[in-house]
């Protein structure tokens, strides 16, 4: 038979259920890489943490949690056929996500030039021993997920405003939404691990 179709496995319902299971397994897999970074943090930092400014990361955390709220709102909006709220909330999510990403890049990392060499580090540099290494490792991997989430949200927004999704068929929105919440969930653990737990150790230069 050159070509054929599989009626049982072609229905949107079946595919959505399967996709959802696959997506959650992907999350389970990612738990291990983020968990590995947390293990590295506690293994290398122990009961200490680098002494960093506290206000910017708090503001960024608020931005990320707010974006998660708007993402939920967007998903609920399309599930109940409220298109205007849907597209607006998606855009707000993307904006807040971008604020988080740019905030990490320019406030938390910062770019400076020393002796003609491009180096990262307003407050802390990647080369600052284990403190720099773990800090940049954790924020970097998380930021990578944030920026891919923002791209996904923009794609979904673009399709959404052209009427691609409906209350009955919006797996694309749901997938982006749970991915975004997952990124948020990871930050819920990373934020205290980086900024709150342990005694602050200063830069003894």
């Amino acid at each position: 038979m050159a070509a054929g179709t599989d009626t049982l496995h072609d229905s949107y319902q079946w595919q959505t259920r399967t996709n959802r299971l696959g997506f959650w397994l992907f999350f389970l897999s990612e738990v291990f890489i983020f968990g590995g970074l947390l293990v590295a943090r506690f293994f290398l930092w122990g009961g200490t943490r680098p002494d960093l400014p506290q206000i910017p990361p708090l503001l960024l955390t608020v931005a990320l949690l707010l974006s998660s709220f708007f993402m939920f709102r967007a998903e609920m909006a399309i599930a109940t056929d409220d298109r205007k709220t849907f597209t607006r909330s998606l855009l707000l999510t993307a904006v807040l996500g971008s604020i988080f990403f740019l905030g990490v890049m320019f406030v938390e990392w910062g770019f400076t030039v020393e002796n003609g060499q491009l180096v990262l580090g307003n407050h802390i540099k990647p080369t600052d021993g284990v403190y720099g290494a773990v800090f940049y490792g954790m924020t970097g991997l998380h930021a990578l997920h944030v920026i891919s989430g923002v791209i996904g949200i923009l794609l979904v927004w673009n399709l959404g405003r052209k009427g691609h999704f409906s209350a009955e068929r919006h797996w694309g929105v749901e997938a982006t939404a749970i991915y975004w919440h997952y990124v948020d969930l990871v930050w819920v653990f990373f934020y205290p691990a980086l900024y709150l737990i342990g005694t602050a150790v200063g830069h003894g230069h």
Binding site: R20, S68, M71, D184
Partner: peptide, 11 residues
């Protein structure tokens, strides 16, 4: 977040 935002029950 898992229960409300990500509606884990749907799995």
């Amino acid at each position: 977040i898992l229960v409300v935002f990500m509606h884990i029950k749907s799995v």
